[in-house]
């Protein structure tokens, strides 16, 4: 493998590939995105659930993320309703995590001897996940390029050991590294390729389609119903006995239940974009999703991966 550090990357995908290579070389399992609609990389069970329990963990992955209210029909230079996050979670957080992180910036072509990198206080909290941590947003020349968090609690459970979480907003970071002003102009693959593609070639049309659907067309009655159904299914799954009557095994269905929590959370975001949730209702909905996340966390710590050991 050639050392790509200190050479400028030429495309969005090259930045992603370099991050994958970098974190793989630092011992992370490179996972694939979760196959559901989520608002951020944190929702991936590889972060939310794996931050719980005592088992060591080290994973990195790209997570497509959806924030319906951020849709701008592809016109805004850096706001998108669908974008990518790069997520790293290591448990327990290693003592040199800051240095490891700075190494990743070098890997994608940021020469730290020319730039001003800062760790600026930013405490992270996810009301829907019942999670919080302390850390920073990382600034490069005044621009926020990552979120750096030591998880303290998830789903109402104390994290012990503590996980270190890194989140990179890939489009923004790549635009910065590549010197691009409008996201749609960013080269997706190598501009020297036989068929060069920009971010706009890949996503401009979908941004338009989804913005229209998110804001004006999505069937709110159906969505409200689906929210209720996901909530009910989550509860129903978790109400099952831990002992599977068919196989006789102990099977706690934390992940299937958590899928329903993810679903409810995304539906809430869609309803929010449709403007049918009032300020007061908003809090109530967030509380309902948080209750699901909490129950899923409770269930996960009853599983082997969550640290459960049969008596």
């Amino acid at each position: 493998m050639t050392d790509t550090t200190r050479t400028a990357p030429r495309s969005f995908q090259e930045i992603i590939l370099r991050l994958q290579t970098y974190w793989a070389s630092r011992g992370c399992a490179i996972l694939q995105p979760y196959d559901m609609e989520v608002g951020a990389g944190t929702f991936h069970p590889a972060t939310t659930l794996r931050a719980l329990g005592s088992a060591p963990w080290a994973a990195a992955y790209v997570q497509p993320s959806r924030r319906p209210t951020d849709g701008r029909y592809g016109e805004n230079p850096n706001r998108l309703q669908h974008y990518y996050q790069y997520q790293v979670l290591i448990k327990p957080s290693p003592p040199d995590l800051q240095d490891l992180y700075l190494g990743s910036l070098e890997a994608i072509g940021i020469d730290v001897s020319l730039h001003d990198i800062r760790f600026v206080e930013d405490d992270w909290e996810s009301p829907t996940l019942g999670a919080w941590g302390l850390g920073w947003e990382v600034w490069c020349d005044g621009m926020e390029v990552s979120q750096f968090t030591y998880f303290q609690q998830v789903g109402g459970h104390d994290c012990a050991p503590v996980s270190g979480e890194l989140t990179y907003g890939l489009e923004r970071l790549a635009m910065y590294v590549l010197g691009i002003d409008h996201v749609m102009d960013m080269p997706f693959n190598d501009p020297q390729s036989p068929i060069p593609l920009t971010y706009g070639d890949v996503f401009r049309q979908t941004e338009e389609e989804y913005a229209r659907w998110n804001f004006d067309v999505a069937n709110t009655e159906m969505l409200l119903r689906h929210f209720e159904e996901a909530e009910a299914e989550c509860a129903a799954i978790l109400a099952q006995s831990h002992d599977d009557p068919k196989t006789g095994k102990r099977i706690v269905m934390a992940h299937p239940a958590y899928d329903q929590c993810i679903k409810a959370s995304h539906i809430f975001n869609l309803l929010d974009a449709r403007g049918v949730i009032s300020v007061t209702e908003r809090q109530a909905y967030i509380g309902r999703v948080r209750a699901l996340a909490k129950q899923c966390a409770d269930a996960f710590v009853q599983t082997t991966a969550g640290g459960y050991a049969a008596a």
């Binding site: 290693p94 850390g135 303290q152 012990a160 503590v162």
Partner: peptide
């Protein structure tokens, strides 16, 4: 304050 790694000591950051 916070904890970090596998320890139980609390400080503002590690």
């Amino acid at each position: 304050s916070m904890r970090w790694g596998a320890g139980s000591l609390r400080w503002v950051r590690p």
